[in-house]
């Protein structure tokens, strides 16, 4: 994802492109591009990111609308999950007789 604050008036806005590679999968960030509007962004995304049938569906969103977490606050942000290993199935010991659980 690119920083958008440096864009000027003559430059087409920047868009982030997300692509569903095949039915049933989620959209995944593919990259970004410039386009005058959403329709052009989708058409450009087709040409730039799906020249080899990499996608069956495209999402575009103007980069300025994306909010991201601050990497320097990662420690405190994810801290609550750090000491809760009981959330994972491997935390529990089962007797060998128990199958399929």
């Amino acid at each position: 994802m690119a920083q958008q604050d440096i864009t000027n008036k003559t430059e087409w806005p920047l868009w982030e492109v997300f692509i569903r590679s095949k039915a049933g999968l989620d959209h995944k960030h593919a990259g970004s591009l410039h386009a005058a509007d959403a329709q052009m962004a989708i058409e450009n995304a087709r040409d730039v990111y799906t020249r080899r049938m990499e996608g069956v569906s495209i999402w575009v969103v103007e980069s300025k609308f994306i909010h991201a977490s601050d990497p320097s606050e990662a420690d405190s942000l994810y801290d609550p999950a750090n000491d809760k290993i009981y959330r994972h199935p491997t935390f529990y010991n089962l007797p060998d007789e128990v199958k399929y659980m």
């Binding site: 920083q3 440096i6 430059e11 990259g31 970004s32």
Partner: peptide, 15 residues
């Protein structure tokens, strides 16, 4: 285009 947008993430505009 892939590379220009990678460069833009470093804070330089396409123009």
């Amino acid at each position: 285009l892939y590379l220009y947008s990678a460069a833009e993430t470093l804070g330089i505009s396409r123009d």
